[in-house]
Design a protein around this nucleic acid. Sequence first.
RNA 1: GGGCAGUUGGCGCAGUGGUAGCGCGUCCGCCUCACACGCGGAAGGUCACAGGUUCGAACCCUGUACUGCCCACCA
Length: 903
Amino acid sequence: MLPKAYEPQEVEQKLAEKWQNSKLFAAKADKTKKPFVIVIPPPNITGALHMGHALNNTLQDVLIRTHRMFGEDSFWVPGTDHGGIATQNVIEKKLAKEQHKSRHDLGREEFVKTVWNWYDECGNAIFNQFRKMGWALDLSDIRFTMDEKRAQAVYECFRQWWEKKYIYRGKRLINWCVRCSTALSDIEVEHEQHAGKLWHLRYKGEDGSEGIVIATTRPETIFADAAIAVNPNDKRYTHMVGQKVIIPLANRAIPIIADEAVEMEFGTGALKITPAHDATDYEVGKRHNLPVMTVINDKGKMVNCPEKYLGMDRELCRKETVKDLESAGLLVKEEKYMNNVSTCYRCHQPIEPFMSEQWFVKMDQLAAPAIAAAESGELQFHPASWKTPFVNWLKNLQDWCISRQIWWGHRIPVWYCRQCSAKGLTFATDQQGKEQLTKVSFEDGATPIVSYHQPEKCPHCGGHDLVQDPDVLDTWFSSSLWPISVFGWPEKTEDLNYFYPTSTLVTGYEILYLWVARMVMTGLDFTGKLPFKDVYLNGIVRDKSGQKMSKSKGNVIDPLDMTAKYGTDAVRFSLLMQAVPGKDIPYAEESITGARNFCNKLYNASRFILMNMEGINGPLSMPKQVTELADQWILDRYANAVKTAREGIEKYNLALTANTLYHFLWGDFCDWYVELAKQRFQTDEKEHVMALCVNILYGTLKALHPLIPFVTEEIAASLKPYVGVSETFLLNQPYPEFDRTLCNEEAVRKMNIVQGITREIRTIRSQFNVPPGLKIAAVITAKTEEELATVKAYESYIKLMAKVEDLTITANADKPKQTATAMFENTAIYVPLTGLIDFEKERKRLEKDLAAAKANIVSRQARLSQENFLKHAPAEQIQKTKDELAAAQAAVAQITASLEDLA
RNA sequence: GGGCAGUUGGCGCAGUGGUAGCGCGUCCGCCUCACACGCGGAAGGUCACAGGUUCGAACCCUGUACUGCCCACCA
């Protein structure tokens, strides 16, 4: 005998291995079939899986599995991402913790080797977790953004864009992370509200006058001031424009200029312009031809400033400057201020705007086709509300800074001749005594040679002393090529031809710009085709109170802990029940228990049906024709559940699919059909009923399999002999089709009457504490032909489900004495309960029902007396209202009689 | 500053024109021979607010408030 409760752990382990070993998830590359392809958002090799991965991958898994069952050649392409800065940070922390070493202690080569070792370790761990989760990825064929093929793709992209002049080198004010010591692109910068201060500083006039007062959050940058700016329309300052003032503590004169960028209302209306350390100021400086002077270096230390502050950290210098300004009497005011601080998306330290020569990609030509694709609707977003932000982002795109001053990543495929480029190259000796190229300046004459491998010789002088650019590419550079690189681009492979473009991209909205937009641009640029036509944006898994999960908040739920405790299916199903496109999911352990209970319900229902299979040999096919109400009804429910489940998948509304199947299985199949079937098991109808049970259950298992693959596969294995299936895996069987011929509205209507009357009797039983085992008598007086006929025909259902022994059915009986009364539509239900009735309780109950019925009469009558309603509303609606009025009137009459009876 | 979501019973959410559903929780009764991870029943909501469209609005339109997110060079 099977255990009472479903124990997922062993089952899942066993099946996960079986699936992988059978290569069940390998795409067949069957050219006769339509491919359905999803490329996985490759997880960074930074550590363990979190709930976000669980959600994102489960959604993809459901799509992959359903489309496979739809008969398509579905292929989910697995891989990982090297994760640039993120991974380098993880390894640096690890080194510091375990060996008290920095990456500089190891040197570049050794450090990179260390990360590769980490990749072996962590990559494996990730795929083991994938296997455990049962995700339909063929793990025998995986990709990595830094493996040889993907590196070739990166190089080819760089080369082509260099030739097209999309890639260029430029000196700009870029976002510099002092902690990570690298440049960042604009979207890698996050904006956080920090409690800071706003200082009002006086810049005295060159002529000794009072000068002007400005407001700043960054007093340490005054040494780099190039001007003071005011709004041209600001009458307070018009007379001062053109005059010169003295920078405090620096004693340098700068002009007062007028520029539209200055907000008159903010601070004092006067703004210090520091082109080298602020993006706005940089633009103003350009307009006014101001000199750019740097006072903070790449380490965040002060340079080019009065000696006192030289070498000081920027933070400390801020404090010191304020102190000294105060002593000098030039600090006019200090106020608290909520500052919008730019921070690094990886380490969350404040970003320093920094003048630097970097590699950029020109975006306008790349963006244009992407904008067109989104605007035309060729590219679809789910939910669609992301289209506008997507397009707007592309329209306001700045050039993409792609060089990073870190060690882990694709090295820029550019070389320099030490002879020809000598002036533009700066070398330093590292801690291992090796000479390293640290800085490249095209402005000073470095000449690039674009090449994947080290060129044999310099094309200019024939020299052999060539060095590679020290920078690596933005990690998103290789990610943006992912949909083509996974299939072997730039080679014209068969895979690329067959599987590209892919079908759907499933990812979080937080990387829509960082990743999705760029894949669209590169895909269109290199292939002329969109990499995917549907973008399904999933929400973020949050904690129960809607907070983002984070280690520091201690509210993280580990998906692996949860799968160990409740089973993978339970975790998957709990997420799917809430998976509405674009919506965040509040998540708590309690969310999982419901899903776990469902898996158990499914298991037990199956167990029950299997138990009743005893004595039945061979497969039972689905009966072609059914005449019994319960059979007609359950087939209608089943057909509709399948229909809605499929709709949910097509509309990317997996919550709809999950909920529909949940309620069909539990509410319709178990609570009513199987309960009714129990009595038929004792008759010669048994085989017929079993045929329906087992086939409907098997169909439901197939419909559920993409959502909860383990428990369904496990059950299906036992059920197969009874439905005549020889195929081992559910995944290779067709997804249930909606069968219109099974729909039967009349059966649903009749069953609804049976259920309604049953519930009324059960309520009476419960209200008057009738012992569950006690069979009772009941009198049903049906006032309409339909109800009367139905009750008469299916009195056995009511007797069974409501535990009624003696059922009297009449068209018009007087209310028996000493009974409880209930109404269902036009039918009165009397339950004689001599000695059991609490008259006071019954009176209260009846009065409540009476009030409700009276309210119904009033509202229906009001509606029916409106001429406009009768004129405009559809006939069907008018009839419905009339029926409701009649039912309410019948109820009032009946209940009133009952109340009189009680008195 | 711009944009996008959301506001439905104690909690978390479904529901796109015919006056409300689900899960959890609560309360009552049940170990009824598949399942107590269960069965039956009950209580609980003027669908944020104000206008408008409509015979009819949780649902469509306008505005307001609050919450969250994204974008943006008010230092």
